[in-house]
């Protein structure tokens, strides 16, 4: 079996929503160069709905595919629904990720949360802080051995 599902390869080869939104309402960036994965999500929000979403990702095939899939899953959706997106849902939508690549889907979930939080903060919108835990440290991700 190949490392990646056909869905992952499709989203990696033809990533959806790649780009930058210059006048974004919310921007979220997670990960770091040391670990080799950085995900940045840009949101355009109107009346509580994600009108547009773009991403830029430095990372492996599954990181790019996870970004692409996650942005597709939240585009046109209300913020409340986007906040419910879990990394598991992203991975499932991609027909699964290899165990050691699951952290890529976690990054996608966290990047979206970070972007929504940024939007709330910028606009002085009250929100439930417990909904926005600090992004994971890379050290917590599963490694072999």
């Amino acid at each position: 079996m190949a490392l990646y599902s056909e869905k992952v390869m499709d989203h990696f080869t033809n990533p959806r929503n790649v780009g930058v939104i210059e006048d974004a309402d919310g921007v979220g960036e997670v990960g770091n160069a040391v670990c080799g994965d950085i995900m940045k999500i840009y949101l355009k929000i109107k009346d509580g709905i994600i009108e547009d979403v773009k991403f830029k990702t430095f990372g492996c095939g599954s990181a790019i595919a996870s970004s692409s899939m996650a942005t597709e899953m939240i585009k046109g959706k209300p913020l409340s629904q986007a906040l419910e997106l879990t990394n598991k849902a992203v991975a499932e939508a991609l027909d699964g990720l290899p165990a050691h690549k699951m952290h890529c889907s976690v990054l996608a979930e966290e990047a979206i949360r970070a972007a929504i939080k940024d939007y709330y903060d910028k606009n002085g919108i009250e929100y439930d802080k417990s909904q926005f835990p600090e992004p994971h440290d890379e050290e917590e991700h599963p490694t072999e051995e």
Partner: peptide
Amino acid sequence: SACTTASL
């Protein structure tokens, strides 16, 4: 790259 191995 780390991503080609199982570790980070």
